[in-house]
Computed example of a mutant assay.
Amino acid sequence: MKAKAFIPSVSFLCFWVLLGLGTSGLLQSDDADNELGRYISWEDLSVAKDFRRERNLKHDNGVGQEYLAPAPSNDEDGSRVIVVEKNGRGDSVTVQGAVDMVPEGNSQRVKIFIQPGIYREKVIVPSTKPYISFIGHQSYVGKTVITWSDKASDRYTNGSEIGTFRTATVRVDSDFFCATAITIKNTVVAEPGEIGKQAAALRITGDKSMLYKVRVLGSQDTLNDESGSHYFLKCYIEGNVDFIFGNATSLYRDCYIRSTAEGIGSIAAHHRDAESENSGFSFVNCYIGGTGKVYLARAWGTHSRVVYSNCYMADVIKPSGWDDWEDKARDSEVLFGEYNCTGKGADRTGRVPWSKSLTQDDAKPFLGMKFISGDKWLRLKTSDNKNSQWSI
């Protein structure tokens, strides 16, 4: 995956499309001449109530709940809904099967409603299929799981290793993807420095994606936040080494970032290689906890950029805070900053001198939606972001 390993010492469905004009119900223009549908809203993260019917079942040990998977139909906002139910009562028994049902070049939102269950499969959302949502039930986030176990040292039939970038349980190459109330997991357990055990749960290369209350679980290289602009809101992300890595421009807000390291580990590894690249990871109002002693970030790229603002840091942060990938030349080029953070781990007494204690003015560009150009592709009412609590 990365040039330097971590060392502890340091379908088929028909969609009616108006041909020629290319205008669907979701892609008309509003009064401001903006194309509707070219953004993500809260409606893209929910399904109509008719799709969320439950019934109480009496079991020997009490009363439980079960989903009733309805026949496919259009959601109340006009988007298509495909139901995934592993027992065969939906439109597909697999998540990939549902993705395959979306037509190439679709121009309107397709919601894939995933019923509770463990889906043991690799899933790829190709770049030719934008506007896809993965939606679970908010009460069953931990019970709607997509899981796999590829690692970097696994081999193809020709004998070559698959490498880190092909290990992801879920890979999203499309634009305007969003997800909520699901768990994405890679079950490979890696110790820091263990060769070939890099194992991603999620890889995102598409642009303009939002994840809300999604759990991303793994150990080494859990989340490959590779490229594009992304918004992670109230997500739970765990791992031990470089478990958030890539060169995306991403805002992590109100997230629970949990280290599972037993010794030394690292949260982030950002791969910005030039001052002209407008990328970086910004963590705002996040909770940083777990085990071990971890770096806030390592400078995978020569101009790596990672900022933590208004975060609570438990006593899991290594006093030096940041790592330069054993390249002193990067010390003057990276932007590793902290602003208004609290907790024992936020004590900057022992920080490396080339990291920055930011002022409010310094931190301002990293605090809001402008950092990810969210005003151009997100339509979220701030009132819906009530109760800024870390997701668990």
Results as ranks from 00 to 15, higher is better:
Lys2Met: 06
Ala3Cys: 11
Lys4Ile: 15
Ala5Gln: 12
Gly25Ser: 14
Asp30Phe: 12
Gly37Asn: 09
Trp42Thr: 07
Trp42Ser: 13
Glu43Ala: 14
Ala48Arg: 08
Leu57Ser: 02
Asn61Phe: 08
Glu66Met: 08
Pro72Gly: 00
Asn74His: 08
Arg80Trp: 14
Val84Trp: 13
Met101Tyr: 04
Val102Glu: 10
Gln108Met: 14
Lys111Trp: 02
Gln115Glu: 11
Ile118Glu: 12
Arg120Lys: 14
Arg120Leu: 07
Ile124Phe: 09
Ile124Tyr: 10
Thr128Tyr: 03
His137Asp: 15
Val141Arg: 11
Ser149Thr: 11
Arg155His: 02
Tyr156Lys: 13
Ile162Pro: 02
Thr164Ser: 08
Phe165Leu: 09
Val172Lys: 03
Thr183Leu: 08
Gly196Pro: 05
Ile204Cys: 10
Ser209Thr: 12
Met210His: 06
Gly228Ser: 12
Ser229His: 12
Cys235Tyr: 14
Asp242Pro: 00
Ile244Arg: 00
Tyr252Gly: 05
Asp254Ala: 13
Cys255Ile: 15
Gly263Pro: 03
Ala269Phe: 06
Ala274Thr: 03
Ala274Glu: 14
Phe283His: 11
Phe283Asn: 08
Thr291Asp: 01
Val294Tyr: 03
His303Phe: 13
Tyr308Leu: 09
Ser309Ile: 07
Cys311Gly: 05
Met313Pro: 02
Met313Ala: 06
Asp315His: 02
Trp325His: 07
Leu335Asn: 12
Gly337Arg: 04
Tyr339Arg: 04
Asn340Met: 07
Gly350Val: 00
Arg351Lys: 09
Asp361Ala: 15
Asp361Phe: 05
Lys370Asn: 14
Phe371Val: 04
Ile372Leu: 08
Ser391Tyr: 15
Ile392Asp: 13
